[in-house]
Every structure is written in C-alpha cells, then in structure tokens.
Design a protein around this nucleic acid. Structure first.
Lengths: 225, 225, 225, 225
DNA sequence: CATGAATGAGCATTCATTCAT
DNA sequence: AATGAATGAATGCTCATTCAT
C-alpha cells in the first residue's frame, strides 16, 4: 500500500536549486502538515500551540501563516490533504477486486491498515477534527462525505448485484460500519498513546469486523432437522 | 423510560431562603449541570464559556465553583451524573428480558431512544467529552467502561448461552456495536443541529442496526439446488 | 472655571461602602480614563500599550475590558466623556455674556485655558484622536460637531445682531477659527512636551487670536491726515 | 501652477527587465512615493501595510527597503520630497507679486489649490504625518518649518512695510493662519473621502479666509454720524 | 538592484478562576 | 452560600524587516 507515500507527494514547490539543503525533506507546507499531525495528535488541537507546530516543523511561528490562514485552516487543510491521498489509495486498491464482498472487506482492512501505519494521523482525523468549530459546523462534509460515499457505493453495488441483503438502508449501513471501524481504531490508538498493551492486533480486528458484518451475530441454527 | 428523570434525581438542597420558588425543581447543582449540557452541546466544550453556563443556569459565575472544581470537572461530573442514571435505567429495562438477543436489541433501542429524547446530552456525551484533555487522557474510563461492560456482558452471555457465534471477540464486538450506534446517533444529532431534515428516524435506525448485527450483510444463498 | 472638575464628575458607581479604601480616588472607570489620557498623550495612541494604561491606572490589564470594549473604544469613550464636560463648562461660561463678540473672545480664551490646564487632554483630543480609524471614519462627528456647532452659533448670532460682517460664511469661519486655535494650542503643547521653552503664553495667544479675528490684518489706512 | 509636475520630476532610471518599458515614467523611488501617498491617504499610516504600498507601486516588498530605511523613513522622505516641490512652487509664484497683502492672499490660494489638486497628498501631509512618532517627536520641523517660515516672512514683511498691523505677533499669526487653512482643507478632504457632497468650493474658501484675515470679523461702524 | 519567503518580536484580547464582601 | 469585579497568564496572529538567491 501507498497511502502515506501518496499523502506525502509534495505539491511541487520551488526547491532551492543550488544548495539542496538536504536536511529539508519535502517542502515547507508538507513539513508543517506533518508537524501539525504530530502535535495535534499528541496534545490535542486546542492544547496545541501554533508555536509548537512551528518548532516541530523547524520553522518560525509566522511561517505557518504563509501557508495557512489560521490554526483552523491548518487543521482543515491537513484533513483535505490526507483524505485526498487516502481516497486515491483506497480507490486504486479496490479497483482490482471483483466481488462487492471482497471490496467491502478490503475497505475495512485498508482503513485499519492506515490506522496501524499512521496512528497519529488517524487520531487527528477522527478525534481532533471534531474540535474545530468552523470545521464541524460549516465544512465537515466534502472529503469525509466522499469517504463515506465510497463506502455507500460498495454497499449499494453489493445489493444491486444480489450479494447483500436488500433490507438494510445503505445510508445507515455506511454509518454503522464506519462507526464500528472508527471506534475500534480509536480505542486501539488510545491504548497505544496511553502506553497500555495493545488490546488487539488491528489485522485481527479487521477480520473480526468483517466476519461480524458479513455473517451477523446470530449463530445459524443450521439444519434443524 | 425514565433516564432523564432519573438523572434529575435531586440531591435535596435548599432554595435561596425567602421565596422557595417552587417552579424550579432541582437544586443549584442540577441546574448548573442542565445548563452545561445545553451550552456545551450548542457551543462545544472549548467554545463554551463558564459565564455562559452560569447565565443559563441563572447563577453568578463564581457560584459554579462552589459545586465544581473547574470547567473540566463540570464536564466530568456531568458525565458521571448522567451516565449513572442511564446505566441504572438500562439495567432495569434489560432485567426483564429473557434472551441475550432480546437484550442486545433492546440495548440498541434504548441507546437510540435516549438520543432521541435528549439529543443535547447525547452530543455532549459523545462529542464534547472527547475534548477535555484531562478526561480523555486520565479519566475517561470508569462509567463509560461500565457502559461498554454492560454491552460486553450481554454479548458474552449470548455466546455462553449458545445464542451468538463464538468466533467473534466480545471486546471487539462491543466496540464495533457501540461505534455503530454512536455514529448513527451522531449523524442524526448533527443533522438536527444543522436544522437539516432528519435523515432517518432513530427507531428505524435501531431496527436496521439490530438486523445488521443479528443477521449480517451477506444474503444467505439458501438452497441453491 | 471648572472644566476639569466637571470632567471628573464620577458617573456614580457603587463605591465600597464599609471600607472606603481612601487611596482610590474616583471610580475605576475614571481612573482608567485618566491613565489613558496620560499614556496616550505621552506615547501616542498607537505606541501606547493597553498594559501601560492599566499599570498607570493601577489595575490589571483585563480590568480595562470590564469598562471598555477595546482600545479604540477607550479612546472614543475618553473623548466623549471629556468633551461632554468641556461643552457643559463652555456653555455655562458663555451664558453670562452679552455681546456676540464677548462670547467669541471668551470662547477662544476658554479653549486655550483648557489647553493650559490640561495639556495632555488637549493633545489626546486633537492629535491622538485622529489615529483611531474607527473613530475618524465612522464616529468623529457628534460631540466634536457639537463643539464646532457652538462656535458656529456664536458667529451666526453675531451676524444676525449686526455685530459681525455678513459676507463671511459661518461654516468656513468656524473651521478657520477652530483651526487657528487648535494649531496654536498644538504647537504650544508640542514645545512643552519637547521640553522646549514656552514659545508664548497661551493667555497672550488668546488675546492675539481674538485681535486678529476681530479686526483683521490690514492696518486701517483711514484718516491719514 | 506646477506643484505636482515639479514634485513628479522624474529622476530618470531604467526599468528592470530587458526592454525598458517606456510606458512607466518615473523611477522606482518616485513610484513608491506616489503609491505611499495613495495608500497612506486611504488607509492611514498605521493601518497601511508596507506590502500594500509595494503592491500599489508594482514592486516587491523588499524593494522598498532599497530606497527607504523603514516605514517611518518612507513617510518622512515623502514629506520632504513633496514639501520641497511645493515650497519651490510657492516661492516662484509669490516672487512676481508686489504687495505683502497680495502675496499673503496668494499663499492662501496656493495652499488650497494644492489641496484641490492633490487631496491625497494634502491628507498625508496634514493628518498622517502626525502619526509617525519619530517624525513628530524628533524630526517634524525642517521643511514644515520652512513652510511656516515662508508664511512668517510674508507677515513680517507686511508689518515692516506698514501694510499689516504691528500689534500681532507674527509667530502666532503664522500658526493661526496655517491652522485655519489646514482645518478648512482637512474638512474638505474628509468630506471628499466620505463621499459626502463638497461642503464648499476651495476657491471660495480661499477668498473667505483671506477676507477674514485681511479685514477681521468686526463690522466697521464707519461714520455713524 | 529586485525579489518575496522567512522571520519573530510585539500585543490586544480572552476567560477560567479567585476572593473580598 | 452567593456574588461578580478583578485578575493576569496564555496565545493566535500581524507585519515590518531581513537576506539568500
């Protein structure tokens, strides 16, 4: 998978030509976003100071404002930037699969793999994001809606192809499944941060969630003769 | 159901001497908690000012500090207070049911009914709660763990009684189910606040979620002859 | 004259009853205004820091914001407060005089006496006031217009009573006279601040200005016998 | 009159690029000063950003610092530059006149004509100039003193030649007259910026001011037999 | 000379919390 | 217990100025 490397794809920006300054990987905008993910994840959006992000990125405080309108905008930009990469990655990964069931299972795996790979990003994307009032109340949707839309598409397709039951509203299903994945991720991430032992492996969790959603809880009373 | 009235169980306390103001049921602490739920839900924990809570509760700003150590403590106390009531209510409701399946379905219904009845409380409990650093990082667990424990108990019981499949880890299941309910609730609450049309009825959502978790997504290929 | 004492008339505000705290003369709002006049005059509105005003007033920085919306509002409030007092004082002083000429001469004297008495106030009123964009562009008028209106009234009256020439537009005259007085004041104040020797006594300046405006520059060539 | 064209006297200098871009007359320094006058007049010295001046001048922000030490220096340089031109123009215009009275009247006319011709310059010269602390407190004088000196010279000359009354101190007179002209100008300029209707024509104002200063306010009670 | 990205000192303002009454 | 004026630490953001290219 290439989620992260995709996310890191630098929007090409004038790189110093003569002296490459090899210490600075990626352009400044990218470095600030990376720093913001780290700091927001560690301290929480509201407790993070812009100056901390700057220090983490190795730039001066004012430099942040050359790239982002304000602290809120930094969070939103970070979100869009990363979600875009994640979406592209997911789409590419899912394109090669044949059945709706395979694609849905893969979606779950991809999400949890992403969380395992970049827990801080996961934390910011799911927890901290809810704290920027502007974001939550005026913006929210877009890319996140796209993400859920992807999920909904998989479900609808499954129903249309007769793979999935038709008596479950896809709009509710997509939220239920997303909520399930998200909560399982969040707890794992929280335990990790609290330096508690891993409560479960995320790969196993993916398997479990899929099993649950695919087959349901109720034990089939097979062949009651 | 009596969640709310239970929550409002007044720790008896006296009215400001002269005129008992019989209209105002509940003591000052309760009034402050009610105000906090309203203000936190409307403005978000970080954007809510203590003085707003005080104004909403009809007390002076300083009075809050006679009942709560600080703003964080107000949020946590609010949480404990309400969760206690909710838990008691849930336990009472579930006690009369026979099968694990019935109890689990009822749990889903109860949660969503609670959301429908007091959306602001639901919002605070699920969204704003994540924003108090002290809470999230040092406290969190307790009552919330109890709530999830209740859920886990239902599942374990179901497995033990042979009602549920044994190949799904209850610790993951409880999170998955809670996440599903929570997300479905959250979206509904969000739409409500944004004054968007209700995306779905919460009663229907409960039915759908249960159907999903009970039977799974995959359409049984019965008897392909 | 009582300009200053009038200006200091405290808008009655709850004074601590039991322990009079004799060190604090005047209420807090008044103390802040006095401090602001001093600091704005000495450092200029833009270079003055709110914390300096607070320190000068002997209050904490935040206290200023219990009385004034922001720095601009402090300047504007200061202006209104003092202008009101000055206007009341001027009106009272002029009421007792019979001819328009006497009143106009007295007006000049009063203005310059006010400058002599409270140079810092004069400086703020004439120089610093122009620096608050909101003030200059949206507010300005009112009390200042009243002041000029007082002047215009005197002139119009003089014309109507046949004391003054009718061929000079009162609206231009009032500006010309005000500008003359203001500039003469300003230079005197500036010299004072720069610790230069007084270029002239303000009482003499009043006499000179009146002589100039009353009789004009041109030496009457009548009756060269 | 040639005030403005004199001020604009281009110090010929070439345009950056390869092709001289013959359309842009005036060198960069001049263009920056013109931009500064416009921006300072419109936004006020303190609210004007150096980058705005740069944008208006069509140069990069840093370029300004190749021509001026800092923002204050830009204001001061602007002032000196324009005042020099104005003074030269005034001197030339006054040279041809015979009587002190004619010269003084002409001075008033010239000042107001200058205001009418370049209101933004007038605004900067009279309002914004007072806002640069360094200017006001350490520099001020020089060219402005020269301007007032010119005025004083006219008065002294008038007295010496017996045209003007000898009982008015020229140092006060020069300030009074300048203040009168300045205030009349300022109000006109202010109305213009506020897009209010012109309160009076500046030509008429010149006539009025001169009439006032020449003959005085008091109506001569000639020959009441 | 020109550029404009980077810098970082500077400051108004907010608001949780205290405490004298 | 209740009050609410006073406090002052905390911080996002601006913008004049610098300097490597």
């Amino acid at each position: 998978m290439t989620v992260h490397s995709a996310a890191a794809t630098p929007r090409p920006r004038r790189r110093p030509i003569s002296q490459p300054a090899p210490s600075e990987r990626g352009d400044k905008r990218e470095r600030i976003i990376e720093a913001a993910i780290k700091v927001f994840a560690e301290r929480g959006f509201y407790h993070a100071r812009v100056s901390e992000v700057a220090a983490e990125a190795g730039v001066a405080g004012g430099t942040i404002y050359n790239y982002f309108r304000n602290k809120d905008d930094l969070l939103i930009s970070l979100f869009e930037d990363r979600m875009e990469a994640i979406l592209a990655d997911f789409r590419a990964e899912l394109a090669g699969l044949d059945s709706a069931a395979d694609r849905l299972r893969r979606f779950v795996e991809l999400h949890l793999a992403m969380v395992a790979r970049d827990p801080q990003l996961a934390e910011v994307l799911t927890v901290e994001l809810r704290q920027s009032s502007k974001f939550m109340r005026e913006y929210k949707a877009r890319k996140f809606g796209e993400y859920l839309g992807l999920l909904e598409g998989l479900v609808v397709e499954g129903v249309e192809r007769g793979e999935f039951r038709a008596d479950i509203d896809p709009r509710i299903l997509k939220r239920a499944l997303f909520g399930a994945i998200d909560e399982v991720s969040l707890f794992w991430v929280g335990a990790r941060r609290a330096r508690n032992p891993q409560p479960y492996a995320l790969e196993d969790a993916a398997e479990q969630i899929w099993r649950l959603y695919a087959g349901g809880l109720i034990r089939p009373q097979e062949s009651t003769p």
